[in-house]
Amino acid sequence: MSEKNHRVSRRQFLTYTLTGVGGFMAAGMLAPMVRMALDPALEAAGDSEFVSVGLSEDEVSEEPQRVDFSIELDDGWYSSEQSRSAWVLREGNEILALSPICTHLGCTVNWGTNEENPEEFFCPCHFGRFERDGTNIPGTPPTRPLDVYEVEVRDGMIYLGQINQRG
Rank of each mutant, 00 (worst) to 15 (best):
R90M: 05
R90T: 06
E91H: 12
G92P: 13
N93A: 15
N93Y: 11
I95H: 11
L96S: 12
L96M: 14
L96R: 12
L96F: 06
A97V: 08
A97S: 06
A97D: 04
A97K: 05
A97W: 06
L98K: 08
S99T: 13
P100K: 04
P100D: 05
I101L: 13
I101C: 04
C102W: 05
C102P: 04
C102H: 02
T103L: 01
T103E: 05
H104C: 05
H104R: 10
L105A: 14
G106T: 13
C107W: 03
C107I: 10
T108M: 13
T108G: 01
N110C: 13
N110E: 15
W111Y: 10
G112F: 00
G112Q: 07
T113R: 06
T113I: 15
N114G: 01
N117H: 14
N117L: 11
P118H: 07
E119M: 13
E119F: 09
E119S: 14
E120K: 10
F121V: 01
F122M: 03
F122Y: 15
C123E: 01
P124M: 12
P124N: 09
C125K: 12
H126V: 10
H126D: 12
H126Q: 06
F127Y: 13
F127A: 15
F127N: 15
G128W: 01
G128C: 08
G128K: 00
G128L: 02
G128D: 03
G128H: 02
R129H: 13
F130V: 01
F130A: 02
F130M: 03
E131H: 14
R132A: 11
R132F: 00
R132Y: 01
R132V: 03
R132C: 00
D133S: 02
D133A: 03
G134A: 10
G134R: 03
G134P: 04
G134Q: 08
G134H: 04
G134T: 07
G134K: 01
G134N: 09
T135L: 06
N136C: 11
I137D: 02
I137S: 07
I137F: 06
P138D: 12
P138S: 11
P138Q: 11
G139V: 03
G139H: 11
